[in-house]
Simulated assay, not measured.
Amino acid sequence: MRPITLVFFLFVALLSACSDPGEPTPIIEVDQRIIFLEQVLNGQLSTPEGKLKSESFYYGPNTLQYRTDFYYDSQGRELLRVGIQDEDTTAVYLNEYLEDGKLDQTGMYSLGPAGFVFTHYFKRFYENNGQTINVLIGRDGNFSQHEQFKLDERGRKISYRRGTETAYDLHEYFYANDQSTQIIEEHYLQSGMTEPFYRYRYDYDEQDLLFAKSLQLLGPEYRPAFEYNYDEKGNLIEEITNDLYFGTLPTERKTFEYY
């Protein structure tokens, strides 16, 4: 009888603990950002003909590292970017837009053991009639500087900065004249520099497609640090990064596919 009695008292104790009105019921918080992401993923995703479908990154330059797939909304705006590595989804980027159509913020979500987890936002702020775009990174009210884009009065990009105002990589873009829309030179500087570390020359073909960004490195001649290839429709299908210190050797490669 003793084992049965012991089980009975354990049952009563457990029942009393479960029905104790003084013990608070745990509250399960629902992340509305995850609900929003799942609604988008389960909704209608557009794949407009001619839009970028995927970007693959190779190192070596032939070893695939990861792929990014692109999906769009009903207006043809980029809605989702999905990062894939070894055939597994690693991250999702979800774009949200302002009423005027400008990009507002991009939420980054990583895939954990129990599903997607919100990581952070890339939040955009527009100044000077949209000629300065500051991008902050963070979440829950805590943000820090991440990127800055600057455009001129004609909407041409004139600089891109990655980092803060004091610790950054800076790219400056130059045009032949006030009417030209083709970049002819790009200067790359790091924080503290007064002179560019690199000066890239932009080379175009007879169809005005950029086929190389070239440098004078370890010699007087220009050699391609980056090379670009296109399909018959003029879509970029390959970008090659070269090492110029030991000849002209490809080290990285990106390929692009379209819907």
Rank of each mutant, 00 (worst) to 15 (best):
M1F: 06
I4Q: 10
T5I: 07
V7N: 05
F9I: 00
V12K: 01
L15F: 09
S16A: 12
S19T: 13
P21D: 03
I27E: 13
F36A: 15
L41F: 11
L41T: 13
L45F: 11
L45E: 11
E49F: 11
K51C: 00
S54L: 00
Y58A: 04
G60D: 08
R67K: 14
R77E: 09
V82T: 04
D86H: 02
A91H: 00
V92L: 11
Y93K: 05
E96C: 03
D100R: 07
K102A: 11
D104Q: 14
D104P: 14
T106E: 02
S110G: 13
G112Y: 08
P113E: 12
P113Q: 10
H120N: 14
F122I: 07
R124Y: 14
F125S: 15
E127H: 13
G130N: 06
G130V: 05
Q131H: 09
I133C: 00
G138E: 12
R139H: 11
D140L: 10
D140N: 15
K150H: 09
L151A: 02
L151D: 04
E153D: 07
G155T: 06
S159P: 06
Y160P: 03
G163A: 01
T164G: 08
T164P: 09
E165P: 01
A167R: 02
A167N: 08
L170F: 05
L170K: 10
Q179T: 03
Q179S: 11
Q179V: 02
S180R: 12
E185W: 06
E186V: 07
T194Y: 07
Y200N: 13
D205G: 11
E206R: 15
L209D: 09
S214Y: 05
Q216Y: 01
L217R: 12
L217G: 08
Y222S: 15
R223G: 00
E232Y: 07
K233Y: 11
I237S: 00
T241D: 10
Y245L: 04
T248L: 07
T248F: 04
L249W: 05
T251E: 09
E252P: 05
K254P: 00
K254N: 06
F256I: 04
F256S: 03
E257A: 12
Y259Q: 10
